[in-house]
Design a protein around this nucleic acid. Structure first.
Lengths: 124, 124, 124, 124
DNA sequence: GTGGTCTAGACCACC
DNA sequence: GTGGTCTAGACCACG
């Protein structure tokens, strides 16, 4: 389900985080769905449990998942809290940098918008 | 001209790279314009020359700048070579991840496209 | 395994690069083989880790090796991408210059071709 | 006549050396032909006289040109001395390295030999 | 343990 | 003056 790229420059724990979030957005994971325990996930992905734990901790901090002590870990209900301003700003900066890079590589505004559209269509 | 954020998680040498590229895109830097020598830039930014040199090396590899032996460093003529496929793929992946994150934070498709439009308007 | 010539005019980091590439070509290093960590290699060769790191970075950029996060560095699978045109052109220029020099020194076409043949026989 | 690439990694003085040698090999320059004074050459190439002087000094050491005091500089008669062993060895090493690089980039033995043949045909 | 980044300072070749 | 290379050492994130 989750695909780890061991040789990516993106840390493994971040790959887990983004893929779980994207699984939620795409509708593969719904609120209340259980996700594997740290150890099982670690086995599945062939990574150390610490790496998975780090990802789960961050996901819990962001209220993407909830851990019910002794029962397991589940996808959380969508948060009603307004997202932290800082997170939006950071993601916007990343978006802008990626755009600039793509412009530099010759991608036109139309191609870019089409790409955005494709991404939005993917989500549930 | 270039603003370094010492506490950013983005390495300093990368900040230099992206800001020079963006300077070119925005038209502040034109082909043939000289850019400060490694040592001068290092003084300006209060970083070590090695860090600036690393950025300049990468920029030269990407054909953004050219160094003329013993003379200094200049903005290169726009490259005619098609950019490596892999670079585009990588930037697209970054874009997609940033988008997904923004969607997660509640940004709509319209807002996103407007953002893209704003970015494109900035450039020369 | 790798022999550094401290008094060569070829930079040490380039000597490391060419020797690893040649090790692959000669079949001493196969895809998946681990290569020593930056620090171990630095100790072996009596150079600073930074120098080895620079060589490894360049080798990774050229997809000769891959680094697995926190695990170490390995010989990469042969790349399927076509090499950049510019690389071939540059190497051809170097070849031509070396040939011209050898012609100047009295080497005949036959001797040269024999030399080429010898080189090709060395490789796996 | 001589083409300098200011942004090449090969030093300018070396570019002058190799191009004069290659001019001789190709027959464009014959023994006894005059070559421009240091200053004229420097003007032609838009480089500093010191750079040209360095090239001429090296060419004279290698007995490619001769300077007749007060009369100018000329292409020398072909030397009868056997070339220094060390020069041959060095050029062979360069050739081998360039070959290995080309092999790495996928050039076959046949292509390589054809290239060699082309080079030999160019010379007088 | 691994590599990545950065500092501080040296020496060199080239122009 | 320029950039290129190397050393010696530090700190950090990741696994």
């Amino acid at each position: 389900m989750i695909q780890i790229n061991q040789s990516s420059s993106q840390p493994i724990f971040e790959q887990i985080i983004t893929q779980i979030k994207q699984g939620v957005l795409r509708g593969h994971l719904k609120p209340g769905d259980p996700i594997p325990s740290v150890r099982k996930m670690a086995l599945q992905l062939s990574v150390t449990p610490g790496t998975v734990a780090k990802a789960y901790n961050e996901l819990e901090r962001q209220e993407v998942i909830v851990t019910l002590r002794g029962k397991g870990t589940y996808i959380a209900e969508p948060s009603t809290n307004r997202p932290a301003e800082i997170q939006v700003t950071k993601a916007m900066k990343t978006l802008e940098d990626a755009c600039m890079e793509l412009i530099y590589l010759g991608i036109t505004e139309e191609e870019m918008k089409e790409k955005i559209h494709t991404i939005y269509k993917q989500i549930k």
